[in-house]
Design a protein around this nucleic acid. Sequence first.
DNA 1: TTGAAAGCGATACCAG
DNA 2: CTGGTATCGCTTTCAA
Lengths: 372, 372
Amino acid sequence: MGRKVTLFDLADALGVSTGTVHRALHGHRDVNLQTKTRVLRLAKSMGYRPNLAARYLSLKRNYRISVNTLKGTTSFWDEVRSGIEKEANLIGLDNVELEFRTYPRLGEGEPEAFEEALRAKVDGIISFPSHPKSFRACMRRAFRARIPVVCVATDAPDTDRLGVVSIDTMASGGLAADLIGQVIDGKGKVATTLSDLQITEHAEKCHAFESTLRSFYPAMQLVAKIEDHDIETEAYDKCRELFRAHSDLAGIYITTEASIPVFEAARDAGMLQQLTIVTTDIFPSLVQQIRAGSVLATIYQRPHTQGRMAFRVLHEFLVHGSCPSPQVTLAPHVITRGSLDFFLLRKAIESTPEKGAQIQLDSHELEGFAIE
Amino acid sequence: MGRKVTLFDLADALGVSTGTVHRALHGHRDVNLQTKTRVLRLAKSMGYRPNLAARYLSLKRNYRISVNTLKGTTSFWDEVRSGIEKEANLIGLDNVELEFRTYPRLGEGEPEAFEEALRAKVDGIISFPSHPKSFRACMRRAFRARIPVVCVATDAPDTDRLGVVSIDTMASGGLAADLIGQVIDGKGKVATTLSDLQITEHAEKCHAFESTLRSFYPAMQLVAKIEDHDIETEAYDKCRELFRAHSDLAGIYITTEASIPVFEAARDAGMLQQLTIVTTDIFPSLVQQIRAGSVLATIYQRPHTQGRMAFRVLHEFLVHGSCPSPQVTLAPHVITRGSLDFFLLRKAIESTPEKGAQIQLDSHELEGFAIE
DNA sequence: TTGAAAGCGATACCAG
DNA sequence: CTGGTATCGCTTTCAA
């Protein structure tokens, strides 16, 4: 394994200066096309790889990243943000500054936050595209400004986003179908609730749920896909209606966090016992339902990890200039009553704030690796 | 937000040289105790944080890490190794060299590999402690040599390992119990298989399984914990015996990869249909069983992620001199028939080799972020 | 015990 | 269009 090739090695071999080599590699204007190709060819043949440490050091400018997300009613978005922060000061050689811009509700204040980030000339944006339509316009501007954008939680189709980090919706739907299907022995009526069929993410979960039923549980019947448009009363009312129309309903898959109104409707209809329920994500009032045994399982969408991954993708691009995997799709976690405590414990650990500034020590000084 | 504090700032403020400050911070011998404490105090009060880029750059020496793992019969250990490699060239600023030392079987060749790594004076070791007893002796030597060791997949109790990365055994057992319990409607006989009750990891899974049954499925009965000692014929024979003794067995939780002999025994006993089975991990012949519908779910132990995390913990220690979380416990993934394909897809992506040396480009040159 | 100074490799500026 | 060179912050000799 030969020693590492440096800029100087290239310059030396070609009889030019490192400045020239540098400009050639980075495609700056004002480089002779010939020397440029010579440099590029040699770099490839010698297997040149830039030394990132040296790069960071000489680059005084810090990367500034804007994190545009929803305020949210549960801790989901807090966890996304804390995941981003954690990854930032783990990876970060202190060369990243995060700027958080949060908007209160779906589609409300999102374009403004985006616009602000663009005006602030950040180097990259991590964003939750809450309103597909207005987001597309934002993306066009980001594209023109050459600011890379990573979407988190939901994809923004037909935009030139650099990457997406989201949960595997197909796996989620498939899991939900299998869990319910197995427990109710492959027969009976089931339903799903979602926010809106227009939202790709939700549509995909339902689709996977339905297609798994078709493939493996032909005797089951999906009788409704309830759209609640993120409005609690709408969810409640439509569920009441559903339970009235199908008093023999056996199971329900709630693809969003909006499970509480469903429980209330089921309880009020006196059907809570008979229903096999799979929910999404986790928060205190849902924990109660799980402990009470009303929930078969909840499908956890790992917001903390989504945040971490989103940061990684963007950082990778800013630093390496390349994007290893424009689509990061996370496997969902299945949480049941018997495993609940272990998941809650992990969640608590994840949200522990980073230990602050910490003087680094040589191992000589650590007394037998003792960790405080 | 004040600008970052450098070594020079500290030296300047104290009227000493950067060399002195450096030596004081690192506890090198031959530093006046007084100046040392003055430096340390000032460093803390000024919130000094070393610039890692500068450190990497000036440190010419690369870290050498030995990865001591099992050859294995399934792809489990291949995935662990590829996870380590992936994280290494993602995080690594090329300052890490990996040396793989693999041993053929449980406890066979393990001490030799360890010894070799110590002799080679590596900077750290990632190891699977396959044989608790001999491993402890190895660890003592590593400790004396001041070489940090991170355990992967299994912990090594009562040793001074730097950290462990493993799957959450409690969550695994709890999940298995809930899955089986719900499907068989909370009543009937169940059993588990494991390699050896001496192995903490297996014992914990069984314990969590049992305790979840006790808490939430009192009408279920755990009739056997079968130890197969990693021998296929032993697993087969003991299962046949089990099935003979309990022809009304309703479910079985296989805590290890050794599920194939169990399927064979069940099939030969004509009980495959009646059993609700939860397995562990995934490999081609198990995939067949899942597709065939013989498996309720398999609990995937995420070897790739285990590898990635193990590397992170060790790297973190070598670089920062601190260990953020000595115990990384991963949440297991639940894979069912309806979600199988999505998990297999992910697995295929994970094991895609890294794109090799790649010239980095400025964003100017990327035509609209187009990723090849 | 401490100070001074020479790198590490890439970047960016200023001359030519 | 290209060469030379100061610079980033830390580590590590070599002298004092």
